[in-house]
Amino acid sequence: MNPMDLLPEKIEHLVHELSVLPFNDMEGTVAGAAVLTNYTFWGIVALVTTILIFTVVARREARRIALAAETGSAAELAPRSRFTSMIEAGVEFIRDMAIDVIGPKDGPKYTAFLGTFFFMILVSNFYGLIPGGKTFAGSIGGTVALALISLLVFVWVGFAKNGFIGYFKSLIPSGVREMSLAGRLALGTYIFVLEFISTFIVRPLTLAVRLFANMYAGHIILGVFAAFTALFWPVLEEGLSWSIGSITVGAVSLVFLVLMYAFEVFVAFIQAYVFTILTAVYIQSSVHASEH
């Protein structure tokens, strides 16, 4: 049998695998939100893992801080476990990001909020890289949910810091506000509409689509290379015809699969980072809205 004959079937299987399905063929409707989907199942696994990691690390830190206070020895505060140091580095990374982007005064308040985005996406993305696993960010529903939280918070911060009217006013640049009445009406309205769409629609939409598309596309690419490797490697699928050419294609696909896998590990980090830093930037623009 020619390997190419099996390709459509494989691709179809891949796309089917990546669509939102009831987990383990459970009964009930998916759209009606009554059942656990394959994405939410892995989201829950990632959530439990993240909570476990942070609970263990935080309890360890608490014990060490108490011990240091008890013995009065600062040596107890020295890093000891590599794993704890890694988590500390992650937390410090988020805190520095919050301080750098939002500012030293308001930044630290948002550390836990930004950290929730970052670690939730990051841990989940790693589960997505395990064969058979999924990241909730591979479903547009998951990323839309996160983007709406981001929107809710940066708009709420904007209202809290500038007042309801003040926040909307801040969408119009101060230069326009100093123009004549006709100018304000014409240019002001135009810019207000643009800024309104940009802030309330484009921001959450791009957040959601960027994260989803990156994860989904990454998994499709990995799946395609995996399918090619399986099809052109006669050892893996019985009953397939093979030649030197097909083995070469299989070998090249395997090399690309490994390279793309490494790249997807990088993407898992980058996308978690991008989502988090953009949320931080949006919060910053809300905090300092009246200064523009």
Binding site: V15, L18, G32, T37, G43, V144, I149
Partner: peptide, 19 residues
């Protein structure tokens, strides 16, 4: 693939709040 499924939205909100 590109339709936000409510079955994925609300669990993500709950998960976010818990975390």
């Amino acid at each position: 693939a590109v339709y936000p499924n409510p079955a994925d939205i609300w669990p993500t909100w709950v998960a976010f709040l818990i975390l």
